[in-house]
Computed example of a mutant assay.
Amino acid sequence: MSRVEESIEVNVPVRTAYNQWTQFESFPQFMTGVESITQIDDTHNHWVTSVGGVKREFDTEITEQTPDERIVWTTVAGETKQHGVVTFQSLDATTTRVTTQIEWQPEGLAEKVGDAIGVDDHRVKADMKKFKEFIESRGVETGSWRGDVD
């Protein structure tokens, strides 16, 4: 398994950062390679990605979710094997640290080479910067889901 971790400080309150992250269907606006995400229900999403010319579809399940603190997910169907967690830490009333940790199984030669030379690390770092720009430019979230998942 490969692993990447990235943190970024965003200049919005923790509630705003967390609420936006629960809006999975907005991810294509700031995540490279994510073509679409369809939210099936409160804990399941269908992803369509295209990275390096490789198109994949897979389903994820949120296995843990605590408002303003963390979201944990894993793939449950499809070609991609992935597990991750995103955490939210309030640094002050208007600043939040968002940390993403993702583990995945690279498949095929292109993904294995990309992993070896750090392509995924760079992509996650760039996507976190795009999330920062996205939420800070708006100042408010596009929606929210405040439920708990145990």
Rank of each mutant, 00 (worst) to 15 (best):
E103R: 12
Q105V: 15
V98R: 09
T38M: 10
E6Q: 15
R146I: 00
N45V: 11
Q82A: 09
E6S: 12
G52N: 07
K129H: 11
S144T: 15
D59A: 03
E79D: 14
W73L: 10
D148P: 01
G118K: 12
V124A: 00
V10W: 08
V149N: 09
T96E: 04
V51M: 05
T43E: 11
P106Q: 09
I40C: 04
K81D: 07
G114F: 03
T99Q: 10
D42E: 14
D68R: 11
E69L: 06
F88H: 07
V86D: 00
P28C: 01
V4A: 12
E103A: 02
F30T: 08
S7Y: 08
E9M: 08
F88D: 04
G147M: 07
E136Y: 01
P28T: 08
E35M: 12
M128K: 12
G147C: 00
V140P: 02
A77D: 13
Q105T: 15
Q29P: 00
D41T: 11
S144V: 14
D42I: 11
M31V: 14
R70Q: 10
V124S: 04
F88S: 07
A116C: 00
D115Q: 15
T43A: 10
N19W: 10
K130N: 15
V140S: 13
V76C: 06
V76H: 10
L109M: 13
T75N: 08
Q89G: 01
E25Q: 13
T75G: 04
R97F: 04
D92S: 01
Q89I: 12
N45F: 02
T22E: 06
T49Q: 05
V51R: 13
V85D: 01
K112L: 04
Y18D: 06
T95A: 05
D150M: 06
T60L: 00
R56H: 04
R70E: 00
Q20R: 08
I8G: 06
A116W: 12
Q65E: 04
L109S: 02
V140Q: 15
Q82V: 13
T87N: 07
H44D: 05
P28S: 03
G52C: 03
V149W: 05
D120K: 14
R56A: 05
T63S: 11
K129R: 14
E6L: 01
A116N: 05
E25S: 12
V76A: 01
Q23L: 03
D148R: 15
G52W: 10
V54F: 06
V140M: 06
W145V: 13
H44C: 02
I135W: 02
W145M: 09
W145Q: 14
F58D: 05
T87W: 04
H46G: 07
Q89R: 13
R3H: 04
Q20T: 02
T60D: 02
V149F: 05
T60A: 02
E69K: 14
F24P: 06
N11K: 15
E111P: 10
G147T: 15
Q23F: 03
T66Y: 07
D59Q: 09
N11F: 03
D115Y: 10
V85M: 11
Q89M: 08
G78F: 08
Q39H: 06
M1C: 02
Q101D: 10
D121E: 12
E35A: 02
S137D: 12
K129A: 10
Q105L: 10
G84K: 13
D121M: 00
S26K: 15
L109Y: 11
G108A: 08
A77P: 02
D121H: 15
V51C: 00
T43V: 14
A17M: 05
K112A: 04
S2K: 15
V54R: 12
T87V: 07
